[in-house]
Amino acid sequence: MTAWTRKDLTGLDELTAEEIIFLLDTARAFKGVGERSLKKVPALRGKTLVNFFVEPSTRTRTSFEVAAMRLSADVVNISATASSLQKGETLKDTALNLQALHADIIVLRHSSPGSSKFLAERLDSSIINAGDGAHEHPTQGLLDIFTIREKFGKIEGLNIAIVGDILFSRVARSNIFGLLKLGAKVTLVGPSTLVPKRFEKLGVRVSHRIDEILAEADVVNLLRIQHERQRKEYFPGLGEYVALFGLTKARAEKLKPSCLIMHPGPINRGVEIDSEVADGKQSVILEQVTNGIAVRMAVLYACAGGAGLPS
């Protein structure tokens, strides 16, 4: 019996709790591979993985690349500037071309919500969503959940705060969907423009005062905050954001000693998180990066390499 029969991972919203647990358990088995001196298993030998990034990304692409190499897959990277999407070819046509090259796995980063699902429905290749607009970033969600589960041994009943620009965040959505399925209590924190009360319909709590949630939080996951063109009308500026929502040293002192401080990166030191707090002992930001490889190995293996744990 296997808990995993999907060829694609397009989001955590459509997964069952059992499927998420299966990926997390598989990731735990793979994590050991990275700690060996010979960091490679033959699980995906002979398979071709295309990192198809229509939106810039360095860390996610690199993480997938390392994960694929540790599974012995061959990796090709295609970025937006190099791709013919710039020449007016449609996403569907470009992807059909990748399939014609016998790409077994396509890892897609794209600015349009639903773009991974769009390809998954049309191609035989496995499609792994590496971020589709503001919709989902399922491997980031999984690695965050993996990191929490590794520290606490469970997810159920934990108080998890996600702080920042929730409205435009695919990381937040994948975390919300995954954490709720596993029984966590999720609180979204941020300005009312970026964390509208309507989010409560998804089954979370919404707070506009970070000081209210510090004492009870088991995890504080801080999202990168930006104040660029399309955010100008959402809040007055970074200074006011730091004053209201930044995880300053003073605020960090009110956290439980066991509380984890997380961030999907890249961090803005002195904005959403104080520099010393980012480097402090409660911070697991770099462990998240390490765990990301194991989680992505598990996802690639589950979708393209068959089910079951590696021996």
Partner: peptide
Amino acid sequence: EGEWSLRLGL
């Protein structure tokens, strides 16, 4: 604009 737009990120 409602629950579904929040869920789907559209």
